[in-house]
Simulated assay, not measured.
Amino acid sequence: MENVEDFYDQLSSKYSDLIKKCVPRYDELLHTMFLYLEPDFKPLRILDLGCGTGNLTQRILEYFPDAQIDALDLSEDILEESRKRFGNQSNMNYLQADFKNMHLSEKCYDLVMSSIAIHHVQDPFKFKLYKDVFYALKTDGLFIFADQTRGITDEIYFKNIECWKVEALKLGSTEENWNMWMAHQDAHDYHSPVGWHLENLKKAGFNEVDLLSKYLMWGVFWAKKN
């Protein structure tokens, strides 16, 4: 069985196209991640966790062109695609690391963001990740992420997947694409309910947590370190 890194290495050159055909309301999801930021919020240093080929990174650059951005991903091939996309911008830094074994410095980021990546680790490692992010954020720093979630019941969860397939096919995914994602999901994805995320963000130390939006399996989460 291939691991997560090998899977994304193989998809690196096609990932941006495939994800837009796979995730319903993908552009809206990314837009929502910035919608609730205060107009005077001007982060100096930002971390993009699980940056992929740079779809979220692109939005970060548009909103905060003067910020220093660290783009982190497990796959070196994926990071190389991101490097090609953004060239040699002086405010971009690339980090190859596993969510399970990150070594983030204390209070070094004003904003940490992530798009559809955190579900790749099991719940104990998600909680560790939340604590790592809390440690790395400055006071008043924000952690905003979009991710797949699990329904509170199996009936809700599997209905969401059923509806997801209908929408993915409308977006241009093929049955082959769908079967690929499902095989990967069965082997490597660990979806957690919305309530689990909110509860464990609080346990990790975040004072203010919220769910900004949700459609089928995809939720946008917001957490502030006071």
Rank of each mutant, 00 (worst) to 15 (best):
V166M: 12
Y215R: 07
Y109T: 00
Q10V: 07
K225T: 01
Q68V: 06
Q122L: 08
I152S: 15
Y15S: 05
D110T: 04
L44K: 14
G151Q: 04
T139V: 10
K202G: 10
N177I: 05
D77T: 07
E80H: 13
Y26A: 08
P193Q: 10
D132S: 04
L74R: 00
K42V: 09
K21Q: 15
D66Q: 15
L95E: 10
Q96A: 14
A223Q: 01
Q185C: 11
K165S: 10
L44V: 04
L79V: 07
G141Y: 00
K202A: 14
L216W: 03
N177L: 10
Y36M: 12
L201M: 13
D210N: 15
Y135D: 08
D9K: 06
L137I: 02
T149A: 06
R45Q: 15
V121Q: 01
D110I: 05
H188K: 08
E28D: 14
W164P: 00
A67F: 06
E2N: 14
K21F: 08
V23Y: 03
W181M: 13
H184E: 13
Q148H: 12
K224D: 01
A183P: 06
Q96W: 07
V121C: 02
I152N: 14
D110V: 02
W181S: 04
L11A: 11
G54R: 03
I116S: 09
W164I: 02
D123G: 08
G141H: 01
H191G: 07
G54T: 04
D48T: 05
G50I: 01
W196T: 03
R25I: 03
D66S: 14
L37H: 11
E176D: 14
D9M: 06
